[in-house]
């Protein structure tokens, strides 16, 4: 079933991709092939391979139970929040929070996870910023 969904989505993607390719505006100078042809070839490739996957699916992969999927989703949300928090809260604070969360969800007891998060964050800050001179996100407190 998973492979049939993959094949179906691939077909939709191929159709969308080819449609978008035909909408590309040509400029007044162009080579004989132009900017549309290669994307259309790719679209056909994606379409054909998706069709093959749809018609001849492999055995079903082992999907995790719903709770785990939800957890993966939550982690994705935390990562997105982290990306937004970086410029406002600064590197050390946001990284400590995100790393603690990840460590906790991977099975560390909460207090230890918080310590691990702080150690990871400060460790990266010291090695990459103070020693190697990489510029990291600056927050309101300058770190």
């Amino acid at each position: 079933m998973s492979d049939r969904i993959l094949g179906g989505l691939g077909l939709l993607l191929a159709v969308f991709f080819i449609w978008q390719a035909t909408l590309i505006k040509e400029s007044f100078i162009s080579d004989p092939v132009g900017p549309k042809t290669f994307p259309i070839i790719i679209g056909v490739l994606v379409g054909l391979s998706s069709l093959a996957i749809f018609l001849k699916p492999d055995e079903e992969p082992e999907w995790p139970e719903f709770a785990r999927l939800f957890e993966v989703g939550l982690t994705i949300a935390v990562m997105i929040a982290y990306a937004y928090a970086l410029p406002t809260a600064g590197f050390v604070v946001s990284t400590a929070v995100a790393a603690s969360y990840l460590s906790w969800r991977l099975g560390t007891p909460p207090v230890k996870a918080a310590i691990a998060g702080i150690v990871i964050s400060v460790g990266i800050y010291v090695v990459f910023h103070l020693i190697l001179g990489l510029s990291l996100a600056r927050g309101p407190w300058g770190f």
């Binding site: 995100a98 790393a99 990840l102 460590s103 691990a116 990871i120 964050s121």
Partner: peptide, 9 residues
């Protein structure tokens, strides 16, 4: 559980 958060960060 300590390694992967560091990798991500």
């Amino acid at each position: 559980r300590y390694l992967m958060p560091a990798v991500a960060m």
